[in-house]
Amino acid sequence: MGFVSGPGLAWVVGLSLLPFFLQFLGLGLGGALGQGLCGSALGLSEAEAVRYGLVSEYYFYGQLFLVLLALKVTHALALVVLRFMYPDSEPPFAPQVWRLGVGLSLALLGLFLLTRTLPLPFATPLGLAWLAPAPLDPLSVLMVLPEPFLLGLYARFRP
Rank of each mutant, 00 (worst) to 15 (best):
G2N: 12
F3M: 04
F3S: 01
S5I: 14
G8C: 15
G8H: 08
W11G: 08
V12F: 03
V12C: 05
L15A: 02
L15T: 02
S16P: 04
S16V: 03
P19Y: 01
F21E: 13
F21P: 06
L22V: 04
F24A: 11
L25T: 02
G28Q: 12
G30K: 02
G34F: 09
G34P: 12
Q35E: 15
G39C: 05
S40C: 05
S40T: 10
S40K: 01
L44Q: 05
E46N: 11
A47S: 13
E48M: 12
Y52Q: 14
Y52T: 13
L54G: 06
L54N: 04
S56Y: 00
Y58G: 10
Y58T: 12
Y58Q: 11
Y58F: 13
Y58P: 03
Y58I: 07
Y61V: 04
Q63C: 08
F65P: 01
L66A: 08
V67M: 11
A70G: 14
V73K: 02
T74M: 15
H75T: 08
A76Y: 01
R83V: 02
F84W: 14
F84T: 09
Y86R: 07
Y86Q: 03
P87Q: 05
D88E: 15
S89N: 11
S89Y: 10
P92W: 11
P92I: 08
F93I: 10
P95L: 03
P95M: 02
Q96E: 14
V97H: 00
V97G: 02
W98M: 06
W98G: 01
R99L: 13
L100H: 05
L100E: 02
L100K: 00
G101N: 00
V102L: 12
L104N: 03
L108K: 06
L109Y: 08
L109Q: 06
F112C: 07
F112R: 01
L113T: 09
L113W: 10
T115R: 01
R116D: 10
L118P: 13
L118Q: 12
P121W: 08
P121S: 10
P121V: 10
F122L: 15
A123F: 12
T124L: 14
G127E: 08
L128F: 14
A132T: 15
P133Y: 07
P138F: 07
L139A: 03
V141N: 02
V144G: 00
L153R: 03
L153D: 05
Y154K: 06
Y154R: 02
A155D: 15
R158E: 15
